Computed example of a mutant assay.
Amino acid sequence: MYLHSPSGQAQRNNPAPVFWRDPALPFVESRRACHSRACYRPHHHPTFSIGAVDCGTSVFTGAADGPIALHAGTLVFVPATRVHACNPTPGTAWSYQMLHLDTAWLAAIRQEYTGTAPTKAESIRIVANRASHLRFCRLNALLFSNAPPHDKEAALIEFIGDCDAEQGLRIETPSIPSHLAEQIRPALDCLLATPSTHIALDELAYLTGMSRYQVIRAFRTVTGMTPHAWQMNQRVNLARERIRGGDGFSDLAYHLGFSDQAHFQRVFKAHVGTTPGRFRS
């Protein structure tokens, strides 16, 4: 088990996040951050995430109607690939916890108790319920503890099943014209196939049969990001996976197309809220 968790007092005095991972439970990762002022760029990840605001206030971006204020005791459930960010209210610090769940594992668990596969895109949910927040805190404390893996998995499955019934504020998936998604598919496929290569906007326009302006607008509509921002986000997601696998930072920077290791460090921290070294610890 990989665990970097200082004592409670030391953690309260240190705003750097701490991470929990366990090879026996490869489908879940957790973090805690206390009195943090670190900010995230709008991003998405291939995991389902559950965030908890423990102290202070933060601002959630990712809703069509604009930013949403989050207060202590709030949980945020974010499906994979939804562009979002949660940052402290300007000029303040906040404390939070975050779980990342493998989507295939989560889908299998849900199908066990519902008996059906999902039929539509899942909404982001914001749940302001103190009892649910306290339950999440107990779950995360269990994950960070030395309890047996089967106890942790059982508690996680029970929490997911119970919280799936929570309503809260729902932020629906934006409606995307199917023809637009199909039109930019060649550009997305190109970026996915060559994550380390800088693909000029001219080339993406050629692949899609659009003008450069139309490509930017179409990417924003379909993915929530510009082409360049989408590619940077994809590189960071690949870096997270490879860091967990033990890859060195200089090799990662080179193979993922960053200009140097310093550039890689800056981009990674802007998306993940911490340095690659801290993420690995």
Score class of each variant (00 low, 15 high):
residue 158 E to C: 11
residue 208 T to M: 07
residue 200 A to L: 10
residue 152 K to L: 15
residue 146 N to T: 14
residue 154 A to Q: 12
residue 155 A to V: 02
residue 207 L to P: 00
residue 189 D to I: 02
residue 164 D to R: 04
residue 150 H to T: 09
residue 178 S to L: 14
residue 175 S to Y: 05
residue 186 P to E: 09
residue 214 Q to L: 14
residue 214 Q to H: 14
residue 214 Q to C: 05
residue 190 C to F: 01
residue 199 I to D: 05
residue 213 Y to P: 01
residue 170 R to C: 14
residue 182 E to V: 01
residue 171 I to K: 12
residue 210 M to Q: 12
residue 164 D to G: 03
residue 214 Q to P: 00
residue 197 T to E: 05
residue 144 F to N: 05
residue 194 T to S: 10
residue 150 H to I: 07
residue 186 P to R: 00
residue 211 S to P: 02
residue 156 L to E: 06
residue 175 S to C: 01
residue 181 A to I: 03
residue 212 R to G: 12
residue 189 D to T: 04
residue 173 T to L: 09
residue 207 L to Q: 10
residue 180 L to N: 04
residue 167 Q to C: 05
residue 173 T to I: 07
residue 190 C to G: 01
residue 149 P to F: 03
residue 157 I to Y: 14
residue 201 L to I: 10
residue 181 A to H: 10
residue 205 A to Y: 02
residue 174 P to R: 10
residue 193 A to C: 08
residue 201 L to E: 13
residue 198 H to A: 05
residue 204 L to A: 03
residue 173 T to W: 15
residue 157 I to V: 15
residue 145 S to Q: 06
residue 150 H to P: 04
residue 158 E to F: 09
residue 200 A to Q: 08
residue 187 A to F: 00
residue 207 L to E: 03
residue 210 M to Y: 11
residue 163 C to T: 14
residue 200 A to K: 08
residue 179 H to A: 07
residue 203 E to W: 02
residue 187 A to D: 00
residue 177 P to N: 11
residue 203 E to P: 00
residue 187 A to S: 04
residue 174 P to M: 08
residue 191 L to K: 02
residue 172 E to I: 02
residue 153 E to Y: 06
residue 165 A to T: 14
residue 183 Q to L: 09
residue 192 L to K: 11
residue 206 Y to V: 04
residue 170 R to H: 15
residue 190 C to E: 12
residue 212 R to N: 12
residue 158 E to D: 13
residue 203 E to K: 03
residue 151 D to I: 01
residue 171 I to P: 03
residue 163 C to Q: 14
residue 207 L to Y: 04
residue 186 P to N: 03
residue 211 S to N: 06
